[in-house]
Amino acid sequence: MKIRSAQVALLPMFAIVATVYVGSILWTIGISLTPSRSLPIYEFVGLEQYVALFRSSRWTTSLVNMLVFGAGYIGGCLALGYLMAIFIDQKVRAENALRTIFLYPHAMSFIVTGLVWQWIMSPTEGIQDFVRGLGLTGFTFDWIVRPDMAMYAVIIAGIWHGAGFVMALLLAGLRGVDTEIWKAARIDAVPAWRMYLHVVTPILVPVFVTCAVLLSTHAIKSYDIVVAMTKGGPGIATEVPAKFVMDYLFERSSVGRAAAAATVMLMMVMAVAAPVLYARAAAAKG
């Protein structure tokens, strides 16, 4: 039968799914239950690596940082992206130019994003230096070198990178909203802001969910932007889980601990993705 050709054609996919998307994940989970250091040792030690992991202040700091970054980055991108989409949708001039400017950061890598913002926020070279040069010698904008504020500096860079993406998706959503709704609103003299708040936003909820899920996977994966911008510092102020795994794998030769950390990351992603995948599967069936 010809179905055989289709099966042959899908062999690479089957092989990759089996070895990478199933095999490696199980392997990583397996190693997280062993005392492996620089080389894998296949000896079962239960959850010891996880216990040690959560005793490490660097890991707990990384987790908290990821949550702070995720909240700020996702919230910031959604809020700014939605506002930009709404304002662009007011039949403004130069719409194409504005959209191009808002979205171009998304074409650049997180490495480039991190390096650029590192310079802009550098107290001795960037905005602080510029404003002081204007005569406001007391002006301070040194978030990037302050342990309590450095994570917010990374959030700003993240929003710069991602808000245009949200804007693009939401603008498409806004354009898809039935124009009859707006005509009805005009007849009833409902103010525009109430329309957006009570009518349009609820319609766009699926688009918001899509954006939030995609951004949250970025937030959990975030590594490049931190490496480029702060290298995890000052101190461990901007350490994140993805960097923790990389450092413990390749610098500290602690494969078991790294695998435990990666497994925790995996569980966090599933916690975010599972409801969405489930809802989608349910919708597809029903």
Binding site: S24, I25, A262
Partner: peptide, 22 residues
């Protein structure tokens, strides 16, 4: 297989890295 592939798309690279290196 397609479902597993799609699920895999969400998972951070850090989860796969060590086995792939091996």
């Amino acid at each position: 297989a397609f479902g597993l592939l799609m699920t895999g798309a969400f998972i951070p690279h850090q989860v796969y890295v060590y086995p792939l290196v091996q």
